[in-house]
Design a protein around this nucleic acid. Structure first.
Lengths: 304, 304
DNA sequence: CGCGACATGTCAGAAAAACTCACATATAGC
DNA sequence: GCTATATGTGAGTTTTTCTGACATGTCGCG
């Protein structure tokens, strides 16, 4: 808005970013060092200071040789801005640190936990230090009340309980995967999808419908599929597949690392299902860390 | 920079604009009223607050019906931000007001003063309240030392004294003008430029070369021009033209208002000359108000 | 009990602010 | 005199902030 052009009674504060840049330059006695501390170029700092001087109608620095010294007004403003920003900084750090005392408790199915979440915890802690994540493993579908949790990560199909606030993170893509260590790897991996009709297929007790749904989408007769060994958890299923014990069907994101490392291959690709990665929270809670986590998870799941 | 994504030790302060928006909303107890005070939509304030909460990892407000109430952390931050911004606001107002005590002394040829500057003083004071302009009329070329002046406004040709810091504002355009009240207005205004060769031309003692230069640029024989009455100042020259006493030659910006109002007309258009509108200051002074004035003058001269 | 007013929340695109890059200018030390 | 160092600035790019429009939910009134 054009109203922001000059400092006036309608705008009782000049640009706060300019005041910030000025404070650092005043404290360090150098535009270049201020740029280093603020992680911007010295040109950005110089401009901010000039703009602030124009806005206030005063000079804050005077050139002395190849450095700057504060004017009387500059000294005056330096003290005020130092006090103000110190107060803001300390209060924000205290509040943020206070938040850090209370962990953010995230429910997560143990399979997602082991195969997807835990490998990413290091980066998550680095990138969202204010989150202070505490993971709570759960089996199967979480209790709709989400008792004891701030949120729950889930890979499942809608509809969802009405008491949940649901953040959709990504669609689910699944497909058959097998290890190069599989006895028939070469023959199977070069065949069409129909070759799997003659293969005992690894599966989980919790998603018995995964293989038939996949077959149907591939135009294969689901009734011709031969189920192999069943496993209690998706985690065990994928470990068995990695060990070469058979062909498993898996969500893409859960095997992304294995695909990259060559431990597993997906010769028949992946298909989108009705399933979704979601983060669900109790309705009406207002936990700002949830927003940050949702953004981070979307970014993680979207990049695969 | 991606580094600004989250609040962390590398960035010891969250977004200052967000803190500002928060402080106003906290003080007024309303996102909408905060928007009104900040001259932005309520949506902008809402976003800033959400971003601040995500950045700090805490909740600052809780929804209660169709309004918001502060959380404990919000109360804590409200007090800190109120104190900090009050300190900044008061110091900036004091410094700006202090600058206002010292007028900015601008030298200006009396003709430019009367015909261009004075009609614009009202808007200049409104748009640059921190400037506190004090005009000092001078005749002809100002003393190169610019003694007693912060700056001087000038319409002349280079080169300039080496001790000046020169801000070029706009090129000069000049052209013949006459009043509809001129006895031969209809015949003259519909004729080509050459018709002026038969006309006694109004001019000033200070720019005797203006008409010959113009004629030369128009491809007319300068020696065939007939000089009419001479005036001491450009101001008188133009008043005479407005009174219908003859054809004058004038810088476009000085007659812009007359052209708009119909008091004068410029049937033969304007030509750019070697002259320039400049604001000159003593070398090496560092007066921030000069920068603001330069921007304002460029805008004023460019829009014509 | 339904409707309109009021308040906040959010998406997608636009506008403004801030920044970078490259270069200019000036100073200071060797 | 040359090189290093520090600030200043134009033009273009990137990031932040904002708007407009709409959604969602609450509350008061008829």
């Amino acid at each position: 808005m054009s109203e922001k052009l000059t400092y006036s009674a309608a705008r009782d504060l000049p640009s706060l970013n300019a005041l910030r840049a000025f404070e650092v330059a005043a404290r360090l006695g150098s535009v270049s060092r201020a740029g280093n501390e603020l992680h911007v170029t010295h040109g950005a700092v110089s401009r901010q200071i000039r703009a602030l001087e124009a806005e206030l109608g005063i000079s804050l620095f005077q050139r002395q040789g190849r450095s700057l010294v504060l004017t009387a007004a500059g000294l005056r403003l330096r003290d005020a801005t130092a006090a103000a920003f110190t107060q803001l900084r300390e209060t924000c750090q205290e509040l943020s640190h206070g938040a850090a005392q209370a962990p953010y408790i995230l429910g997560c199915p143990s399979s997602l936990l082991a195969r997807w979440m835990i490998p990413r915890l290091g980066r998550l802690d680095t990138e969202l230090p204010g989150l202070k994540l505490h993971l709570s493993a759960n089996e199967g579908y979480p209790d709709p009340s989400l008792s004891g949790l701030h949120a729950a990560l889930l890979l499942a199909e809608p509809p969802w309980p009405a008491v949940w606030r649901v953040h959709v993170l990504a669609p689910e893509w699944i497909g058959p995967v097998l290890s190069p260590r599989h006895a028939d790897f070469t023959r199977l991996s070069q065949g069409p999808a129909s070759v799997l009709s003659e293969e005992p297929l690894l599966h989980t007790a919790s998603r018995p419908q995964a293989w038939p749904d996949w077959a149907h989408a591939e135009g294969l007769a689901a009734e011709r599929l031969q189920m192999g060994q069943a496993f209690e958890h998706l985690y065990y299923l994928l470990e068995a597949a990695v060990a070469g014990l058979g062909v498993a069907i898996a969500p893409r994101q859960l095997v992304a690392d294995d695909l990259r490392s060559g431990r597993l291959q997906a010769p028949w690709g992946f298909r989108q299902t009705r399933g979704q990665w979601i983060l669900c929270t109790p309705q009406r809670t207002n936990e700002a860390r949830t927003d940050a986590l949702v953004v981070w998870l979307k970014q993680e799941l979207g990049g695969d």
